[in-house]
């Protein structure tokens, strides 16, 4: 038991305690210096829910959440099925599609930010191939910016989905395919009746990670758009709202309250998802403790 001690101390001290403290500070108007004394009850929360800027970020987060699932999921499954076939250079391909996932958000943000600016390489490329009419202000036009963000997010994270799905495909026993072949099943019948159902648990875990990631999205938006431009470009998220209205403006009580709202939204979605989706996987990593 003693062996687990240090891990528990560090984990409780730096993960659990801050989350609890956020709940406490959220009830105060507090500039972050000295003890928090100006108790304001639920006032911070009332301001958050009345703030139209917060309604915007909720909409953005929801949009990103749904589109991440709808865009990345099917594309990643098709790619994984494709790359699971016997082709030359398969291991090299697997390394290469994971590259965007390994590169830091800062690098991705700076690189894509430079590519997508009005005088950047994307518009330059469009000009070069004679599609100059399609040049846009990819980052500041509010009707386009969030789609640009979706492209960047998909680019960065789809490799992770493909690798997960490939790993899931490898764990499907060969015997099932052999049996299907003996029964005369076609390729598509095999995929629909064997591969996709057995890939289910992997897809459900991926979707869970994707949902949580969408709700917490911060780095890319903050690096490309900064904390203020994001709201005019229509790409601000709960996390950038939290940083802009919390630490940056020195309102630690308010920032903590935003963190609590984020936490509760994530928790509710996570619990609903676990209850209705992940519970189908008896041995899922996240449900094991509750068996």
């Amino acid at each position: 038991m003693l062996l687990a001690g240090p891990a528990i101390v560090v984990f409780v001290g730096f993960v659990i305690l801050p989350v609890v403290l956020a709940g406490y500070y959220g009830f105060f108007r507090w500039k972050g210096f000295g003890p928090a004394t100006d108790f304001v009850g639920f006032q911070n929360y009332m301001i958050i829910f009345a703030d139209s800027a917060f309604h915007d970020v909720l909409r953005h987060n929801g949009f990103i959440l749904v589109l991440s699932l709808v865009l990345q999921g099917p594309i990643a499954i098709v790619l994984a099925l494709l790359l699971n076939r016997k082709i030359r250079g398969r291991s090299l391909i697997r390394v290469l599609i994971f590259v965007p996932y390994i590169i830091s958000e800062v690098i991705v943000g700076i690189g894509w930010g430079l590519m997508l600016q009005t005088s950047g390489s994307v518009n330059g490329l469009l000009e070069n191939i004679g599609l100059g009419a399609f040049q846009r202000d990819w980052l500041s036009d509010p009707s386009i910016a969030i789609w640009s963000l979706m492209v960047i997010i998909s680019w960065k994270y789809i490799g992770f989905a493909v690798i997960l799905f490939l790993a899931g495909l490898q764990s499907i026993p060969d015997e099932l395919y052999e049996a299907a072949a003996i029964d005369g099943a076609s390729y598509w019948q095999t995929q629909r009746s064997i591969t996709l159902p057995l890939l289910g648990p992997t897809v459900r875990i991926w979707a869970f990670l994707s949902i949580i990631g969408s709700l917490q999205l911060f780095d890319l938006v903050f690096i490309i758009w900064g904390q203020y431009v994001a709201s005019t470009a229509g790409t601000s998220t709960m996390a950038t709202y939290m940083v802009a209205n919390g630490r940056t403006s020195g309102n630690f009580g308010y920032g903590s309250a935003v963190a609590v709202v984020m936490f509760l939204i994530s928790l509710v979605i996570a619990l609903i998802y676990q209850r209705f989706v992940l519970s189908r996987d008896t041995a899922g990593a996240l449900t094991e403790g509750k068996k």
Binding site: L17, P18, L21, A22, Y25, G32, G213, A259, M262, A270
Partner: peptide, 14 residues
Amino acid sequence: MFPMTVAITPLYIL
């Protein structure tokens, strides 16, 4: 389930 984003403000104070 809860990456650092949620805890960052109090974590900073801590």
